[in-house]
Amino acid sequence: MAEFNLRAEPFLGGFSHDYGGAMVEEVTDLSLISIAQPLNGRAALAKAVQSGLGCTLPAPGSSAVAENGDLRLLCLGMDSFLVINSGGMSYDRLAAKLDGAGYTTDQSDNWVALELSGTLAYAILERLCPIDLHPDVFPIGAFARTSIEHLNSIVLRQREDRFLLLCASSSATSFLHALTGSAVLIGLK
């Protein structure tokens, strides 16, 4: 075996910038795991998710938070889910907890994650995101998978003024460019 240690490099080098009114930060410690619900296996999956992750199985298009609070489960569509886990649980451990009730895939490196926060976060996203993010219709915990500047993305509202944004990791640079570009175009520096 070669004498070489592989080094994980964040897709955006751990980018962080405070624009005054808006903050853009790369989130590098999330683990993302997709769960596919086996055909006719919703009940079994719901049970496994409840017992293994301490989380109810959300309906399509909505999300749920685990009891311990460090794991959010998004139901992306009819039979697919995404776990966003900031608690450090590994893919293998999580997969084991489901005990075969869902098909899991490690998606941590598929996505780059950015957090956009601040009072002007909404104004920045208004230039990018086709989804209506008004708090009345897109409250905390709401998310949408959509297209931002030609890129497939997931937008999740974490707090009133804080959004988690996911985009395919190969386009991390362009995605960040879109976001910081918006900040500049609304007049921030």
Partner: peptide, 29 residues
């Protein structure tokens, strides 16, 4: 059919290692 698809194109960095010495190199890593 019970079958599920998910793209992992972005998740994996993939490298081709080709040539008569490829086995030796791969064995090393």
């Amino acid at each position: 059919l019970d079958v599920h698809l998910i793209s992992v194109t972005d998740g994996w960095a993939q490298f081709a290692i080709a040539g008569p010495n490829s086995r030796k190199l791969v064995q090393k890593v």
